[in-house]
Simulated scan of single mutants.
Amino acid sequence: MSAATAGFAALGLLLSACSTGGSGARDEGPAHSEPVVSTAPSSSPSASVPAKKIDAVRLVKEDPKVSPSIKRDLKPCVGKAYPVDVSYGNLTGGSASDVVVNVLTCGDAVGIGSYVYRAQGDGYENVFQAEEPASVYAEIDRGDLVVTKQLYESGDSVAYPSGEEVITYRWSTNRFTESGRTRNDFGNAVGDGPTEPSVD
């Protein structure tokens, strides 16, 4: 092989490597510390990520199953940034990706509503929802739907719940059924928040 041929071959490999897109595969929902729309594609090969980003805000606002209070509170936090997290993944075994939408509060990014939408024809159908006055957040974990609910006792602040319940759901016979539940109780010291170091 001549030097010129070898150079063209190396250049071709470089260009093909640069043209490979993607930011890595994730099947869990994004962290909910920022009140912005975010997406996380699934690594599942059986359900493709939608060709274009779903308008999650419109999906929630036009959903008759969503409570009026959630719709009323779903407003931009800053500019046009709505407090929603959006994840795509394969939860229901369909040919298209399912969409998980978490609605958060603007101030402290606490989840107040979690929804799963399944592709139906040209639209989406609400196949799961959890609405909590305290805190709820749904994620995709290896093909399962995992919903975390914060537990508060009298006197707890929003930042320091007394515990949490983690509920796992699996799609079966055209609906989600609970397949596991764990409860974590947090220590009382957590609710006290950070303490200032003592000075001798």
Score class of each variant (00 low, 15 high):
23 S>Q: 13
51 A>R: 12
131 E>W: 09
35 P>N: 04
158 V>C: 13
53 K>V: 09
61 K>F: 02
151 L>C: 10
96 A>C: 12
39 T>D: 14
168 T>H: 10
153 E>Q: 10
60 V>D: 02
33 S>A: 10
181 R>N: 05
70 I>Q: 04
134 A>Q: 11
33 S>C: 09
194 P>Q: 07
191 G>Q: 11
24 G>H: 04
85 D>I: 07
199 V>P: 08
145 L>C: 02
173 T>Q: 12
142 R>N: 10
76 P>I: 00
58 R>A: 07
189 A>H: 08
139 E>M: 10
110 V>N: 10
92 T>D: 03
46 S>Y: 09
17 A>S: 12
88 Y>E: 06
190 V>Y: 15
140 I>L: 15
34 E>S: 08
109 A>T: 14
200 D>H: 14
97 S>V: 00
103 V>Y: 02
137 Y>S: 03
148 T>C: 06
184 N>C: 11
10 A>Y: 07
36 V>Q: 15
139 E>S: 14
163 G>L: 02
32 H>K: 06
197 P>R: 14
192 D>F: 13
115 Y>G: 05
85 D>S: 08
110 V>E: 09
103 V>E: 02
6 A>P: 06
91 L>F: 09
47 A>K: 08
168 T>G: 11
24 G>R: 03
129 Q>T: 13
16 S>G: 06
177 T>R: 11
8 F>R: 15
66 V>S: 02
192 D>H: 12
47 A>N: 12
125 E>Q: 06
54 I>V: 10
152 Y>D: 04
142 R>F: 04
27 D>E: 14
57 V>C: 03
29 G>K: 09
59 L>D: 01
14 L>C: 08
93 G>A: 10
39 T>S: 14
70 I>G: 01
91 L>G: 00
193 G>S: 03
159 A>P: 10
170 R>K: 14
107 G>R: 13
144 D>V: 01
20 T>H: 09
54 I>W: 01
28 E>K: 07
121 G>V: 01
36 V>L: 15
51 A>L: 06
124 Y>N: 04
163 G>I: 04
19 S>I: 07
128 F>K: 04
95 S>H: 10
46 S>M: 07
98 D>S: 09
168 T>N: 08
106 C>A: 09
47 A>T: 10
3 A>V: 06
21 G>M: 10
130 A>H: 06
138 A>D: 06
119 A>H: 08
48 S>P: 02
56 A>W: 01
177 T>V: 14
79 G>C: 03
51 A>K: 08
78 V>K: 04
90 N>E: 14
190 V>Q: 15
167 I>L: 07
110 V>P: 00
127 V>H: 04
152 Y>A: 02
78 V>C: 00
8 F>E: 15
145 L>K: 00
19 S>C: 04
168 T>V: 13
160 Y>R: 12
164 E>Q: 05
21 G>I: 12
76 P>S: 06
130 A>R: 06
79 G>P: 01
100 V>A: 05
56 A>K: 00
77 C>K: 03
1 M>C: 13
11 L>I: 14
186 F>H: 01
40 A>T: 07
121 G>P: 05
63 D>W: 08
133 P>D: 11
101 V>N: 05
133 P>S: 12
92 T>I: 05
